[in-house]
Write a protein that binds this DNA or RNA. Structure first.
Lengths: 140, 140
DNA sequence: CTTGAGCCTGTACCAACTACAGACACTAGG
DNA sequence: CCTAGTGTCTGTAGTTGGTACAGGCTCAAG
């Protein structure tokens, strides 16, 4: 008969924030948009979390770090929650996301190329003539 | 004595939108945030634009296409408006922007690499085990 | 007994737009 | 002359992904 009056360290919102590194308010935000479940409440109406919430929040954060939108995170979680997720379904989501990332990279590289070659023509002097301004002004 | 009762085709908001490809509402937005000037109004309170507005809006749009934030656009315009802009000053703004673009590219490439190598391990089958889900779940 | 920390709620704010409602203005057709 | 359609005006709300703050409650320590 152990743990009679110190069963488990209870996790409240601040605790979950510290455990995960997530911002305190963001946790509540994730709850309101439905990617985090509404946790049970203590007698004083405090949110009470457990390990499953820690895991889920970390999943969300890691997904976000990899650039998944919250809508995509919702889809991933729906697959996981459904229990019937298949590797094939997840792969489709991941590949779709990968495509949009590759598009973004291509866009940024194009921008980087244009800017780099334009700035390279700058004298950098105290003169009003500037290739960058010209490039932005030209009718394109 | 020509153009006696057809002086110049007047440009209203819709006209400016068509000339530039800019969204109608965005033009008003740019005015409220101060990157586009308040144009004169007709007797019926319609905004009346001229070539200078077309040029300026195109400058803004081109800057946005190159990924400058509206705050950066404001800075660029301030230099141009001041009349005393120097190539050196513009170059500084452009290089700062370039740095942030390169950072974004690097971030996206890292993400792309992680996702690509993870998805590559997927069987894509109708099985619940999935390397992507594992990667998102792992404590990292 | 008071002070501070932590939690609660609702709401406002950021970028950079986009869209919509409701009210006028103007033009062409019937 | 009336009406339909288009264009414009204003203010305001919604988008994404958070972040922050105000005002109020509870609780533990000093």
């Amino acid at each position: 008969m152990k743990n009679h009056h110190k069963p488990v360290k209870i996790i409240r919102r601040g605790g979950l924030a510290k455990l995960t590194g997530c911002n305190l308010e963001t946790i509540r935000y994730y709850e309101t948009i439905g990617v985090m479940p509404e946790p049970p409440r203590s007698s004083k109406n405090y949110r009470v979390y457990d390990d499953s919430h820690v895991t889920r929040l970390r999943f969300i954060m890691r997904s976000r770090e990899l650039g998944f939108t919250l809508e995509e995170v919702r889809d991933l979680l729906a697959l996981v929650d459904g229990g019937a997720q298949t590797c094939g379904e997840v792969q489709v989501l991941a590949n779709t996301h990968l495509t949009s990332i590759r598009t973004k990279i291509a866009d940024l590289k194009r921008i980087e190329h244009v800017l780099t070659s334009t700035v390279a023509q700058c004298t950098g002097d105290d003169v009003p003539e500037c290739p960058v301004i010209d490039a932005l002004t030209e009718v394109a």
